[in-house]
């Protein structure tokens, strides 16, 4: 039986109604949470923010509010995990494929990856969530961690 995405997300690493003005601000909030929970090293936040500037992670889905999957090198990760932020208003990330283009993002999955061969399933679960407009719409409406659990189980 495959694990559901929710099994890879620490409930403490789910932030709803995040009100920020930049991609960097949401990355730093989520990274601080992952660091406090023991998933990533103190160097992780800066590493993700810096990487986002050269190798951005905004994914254009053709929606008003799209998704970003910021992450960085495994050397900054202590154990695998995912942070999820649902924003109260979208912020711009740069487009992964066309870094000069902005993508309006309302949902952020911050990835802590340390062994790609063991985290294929987690990555595939995230991708299938991203590819489901229904799941994304439900996440946008989630008012509690339980609501998120219902979407990602």
């Amino acid at each position: 039986m495959a694990q559901a995405l929710i099994d890879h997300i620490d409930p403490e690493a789910i932030l709803l109604g995040v009100n920020v003005d930049s991609s960097e601000a949401v990355i730093r909030q989520l990274a601080a949470r992952l660091e406090a929970l023991g998933y990533v090293k103190p160097s992780y936040a800066d590493a993700v923010v810096n990487r986002e500037q050269t190798m951005p992670t905004g994914l254009p889905l053709g929606l008003a509010e799209n998704v970003a999957v910021p992450h960085t090198d495994p050397i900054h990760v202590k154990k695998a995990g995912v942070g999820l932020a649902v924003l109260s208003k979208p912020v711009d990330f740069a487009n992964m494929e066309e870094p000069d283009e902005a993508v309006s993002v309302g949902i952020v999955f911050l990835l802590a990856i340390n062994d790609k061969d063991k985290q294929i399933e987690m990555l595939q679960e995230i991708m299938s969530t991203i590819q489901s407009p229904e799941a994304l719409a439900s996440l946008k409406k989630a008012a509690s961690v339980e609501d998120v659990r219902a979407v990602l189980s």
């Binding site: 990487r51 990856i113 061969d117 294929i120 595939q124």
Partner: peptide, 15 residues
């Protein structure tokens, strides 16, 4: 290929 060689390229490879 992807930015870090671990995350998105892994998902794409698997798919």
């Amino acid at each position: 290929a992807c930015g870090t060689g671990v995350a998105t390229s892994t998902a794409v490879n698997a798919t």
